[in-house]
Design a binder for these strands. Structure first.
Lengths: 211, 211
DNA sequence: GGAGAAGATGAGCCTTTGCTCAGATCCTCG
DNA sequence: CGAGGATCTGAGCAAAGGCTCATCTTCTCC
């Protein structure tokens, strides 16, 4: 109960006007992301971030109302990056025959998770329950996208494309996240990619109306 | 790099001898688990835990070397509980025909995650990277178990049962964890269970040697 | 009964960390 | 040039939280 997402309207104290300010903000976010990725959430203290960014702690608080706002900004940027990679790799997939489309999808989803694996993990850890909104929104969008793509293929004849999309997206996401944490190198294993394709194709086949 | 798991040998300061001590330890662990589940990792301070357990902070440190040791103990107990539920629900599954076996598996895996969903989430968040060993060990065990079960069914004719098991277990786990966080009530949805069965059966079919 | 171990207490030390503020410095533009 | 806004500085405040230790109470067992 009470998962009421009280909106925290970005809480930026001052928006950079001069290019100098923009550069500073970028440096801060970059530094924070690095620390987060390399040493985990607890190491990403505001003082440490400021130090690594090469600015004073005061400067950091000139642009971010509090530590949380900084973390949220990192989340936002990371999601945007993943989204870009996904969108790029998925362009024109609708026209492709199913097997190729699936192959592309797998490649795309893997690629999107490879953008910044450690950071990805760290964000899932450090973003408090109330602040996973950004990530959640992204996942919802991906599910919707896949759902639409599935519904568009009459050949599949799915009785509930949304449900199938949900299962596939969350399942694949979880699989990749777990693998990333435990055996990161394995993400490059062609056998794993093959298995993922089998999972998708099999799920689609078994979910057909007549199955 | 340096994911070297430095072993922290349980670091219990004193093992309870008298039953009074055992009760105290239980109360502490119980209190900590509750706070963790209800208010998240940050709320589970040692002082708060001691207060809720109805013991003094000194008593807590009589049994646990540090906060981390306490968290690890909670993880250990939680995993044991999940394992018990899983094992119980999966007994004699080998003899069953495939569809029923899959149905049982889905039910079992869902049930095991329903043991203490909030705590489950909190543990995944709060256990530092170096201390996920307990959870990881459990997941590895489950994968091995499923792998064995799959290999035992000649009908399936899987070229790589371990790989299929890995994909299935991690995929299902991720799916359930995500759903648990975003739409917990949906775990009871029969449609979701059906979709999960479709995913499993489909993946198995598509992974067959001749597929 | 009583010695000694087990168990319990809680004030408070000490470190960490988020964050403020009073001012210095840099830029832009008329 | 110089006024005024933008930017930056960093010592240090205040709160939070992990943890210690000197001391007291309860239990066990001969």
């Amino acid at each position: 109960m009470a998962t009421s997402a009280r909106k925290k309207p970005v809480k930026r104290r001052r928006n950079p006007i001069q290019s100098r300010g923009q550069a500073t903000v970028d440096a801060i976010v970059e530094a924070a992301a690095q620390i987060l990725a390399r040493k985990g959430p607890t190491a990403a203290t505001t003082n440490a971030v400021a130090a690594r960014a090469g600015v004073s702690i005061g400067t950091l608080y000139q642009y971010f109302a509090d530590r949380d706002a900084l973390l949220q900004e990192i989340g936002r940027r990371h999601v945007a990056e993943m989204q870009a990679v996904l969108a790029g790799a998925l362009g024109g997939i609708d026209g492709l025959p199913l097997p190729e489309a699936v192959e592309r999808l797998v490649a795309a989803i893997v690629a999107s998770h490879r953008v910044a694996p450690r950071l990805h993990q760290a964000l899932h850890q450090s973003l408090a329950r109330d602040h996973l909104d950004t990530i959640d929104a992204f996942e919802v969008a991906v599910e919707a996208m896949v759902s639409r793509a599935l519904a568009g293929r009459d050949e599949l004849d799915l009785p509930a494309p949304e449900l199938t999309a949900t299962v596939l997206v969350r399942g694949l996401g979880g699989l990749i996240r777990t693998t990333l944490r435990r055996e990161p190198e394995r993400l490059d294993d062609p056998a794993l990619a093959r298995a993922m394709r089998a999972m998708i194709l099999g799920t689609l086949g078994e979910s057909r109306r007549d199955a």
